[in-house]
């Protein structure tokens, strides 16, 4: 036997799962594909323009910020791509191109890179970008058009239940709204894929949507209308399930989802704005470190000795 063989030494375990961060990120992109296709189908050229703008700016901003920080560029981990696409799907179809650029730059630079990049941001970057635009340009951010014919219109939420849009319109997305939020069907399709891959935890959307349904019922609102309108589906399935900004414990994820549902309904029922998905998730993002601390699992062996049978 050859005595000169150099053996590789490392710590255990010597087996690793195949999954990687970039696989997760690109899966999210795949999962957003149905909603993206719907956006392009409903809003045509405007949608293509905004989506491409956001994605390109996201990648450029990420590269620029990482260069300034003097850290290796990690453009291909897919995380900037996800942020750009998500923000685009959260914008109204009529938004001017420069606003999309500004919002994306804020999302990547202020929302993510200043905290240290992927994994270190406390708030969902795409929502940071959207919240910034909403605060800075409230009029442009709430100007809506109908799908296909692009006629100015108000959203179903602003009209309230019993408006001109039925459940079918809402489910398929044939209503005014942000690019990717209108079709619950397309969003559910993508989310089912992520659930199947176990890339998102069902506890958050179930807690979030369930709470919205229960509070709607209690407040005498139509729960199905509340669930299907506005950015709730997009938020609950794709933003509130962002791994980085949500709790790492199962109990914490339940509280996260339920808490976001409560905040959303408070805003929708009593707030000055018709919609509150962005803020409900951002507020719960802020609570995430605390939730992690409060919901530490009971360590095996710390429950006291079980009684002998």
């Amino acid at each position: 036997m050859d005595e000169n063989i150099q053996l590789i030494v490392s710590t255990a375990p010597h087996l690793r799962d195949e999954d990687s961060v970039s696989m997760i990120m690109y899966s999210v992109v795949w999962a957003l594909l149905p909603a993206t296709v719907c956006a392009v189908y409903f809003f045509r050229g405007r949608a293509i323009g905004i989506i491409l703008t956001c994605i390109i700016v996201a990648l450029l901003a990420e590269a620029a910020a990482q260069r300034l920080r003097g850290v290796p560029a990690t453009l291909w981990d897919g995380s900037a791509l996800v942020t750009g696409l998500l923000l685009a799907l959260n914008l109204p179809p009529t938004v001017p191109w420069w606003m999309a650029v500004l919002g994306t730059a804020v999302a990547i630079v202020i929302g993510k890179q200043v905290f240290g990049g992927l994994g270190h941001n406390p708030f969902n970057p795409a929502l940071v970008g959207r919240a910034f635009l909403l605060a800075a340009f409230p009029v442009q951010m709430t100007t809506w058009i109908t799908p296909f014919d692009a006629v100015s219109a108000s959203t179903p939420l602003a009209q309230g239940a019993g408006g001109i849009y039925g459940y079918g319109h809402l489910y398929l997305g044939l209503v005014p709204g942000s690019l990717g939020e209108t079709s619950a069907f397309a969003l559910l399709l993508g989310a089912l894929y992520l659930l199947y891959r176990e890339y998102i935890d069902w506890r958050i959307p179930v807690g979030y949507l369930g709470t919205v349904a229960v509070i709607s019922l209690l407040a005498g609102q139509d729960p199905i209308f509340q669930l299907l309108s506005g950015g709730l589906m997009l938020g609950a399935l794709f933003m509130a399930t962002d791994m980085v900004t949500t709790p790492i414990t199962r109990a914490g994820r339940w509280i996260f989802g339920i808490g976001a549902g409560v905040i959303l309904m408070v805003i929708r029922l009593w707030g000055a704005m018709p919609e509150g998905v962005t803020y409900s998730i951002l507020i719960m993002n802020g609570l995430t470190p605390l939730l992690n601390r409060w919901t530490r699992p009971r360590i095996f062996g710390h429950g006291g000795v079980k009684a002998h049978e």
Partner: peptide
């Protein structure tokens, strides 16, 4: 395979996987 660790994305899989219920 030699691995180059990247930043934690806080997916919580380690918490779910731990048989001693640690974080």
């Amino acid at each position: 395979k030699q691995y180059d660790p990247s930043p934690c994305i806080r997916c919580g899989r380690c918490v779910d996987a731990c048989p001693a219920y640690l974080m």
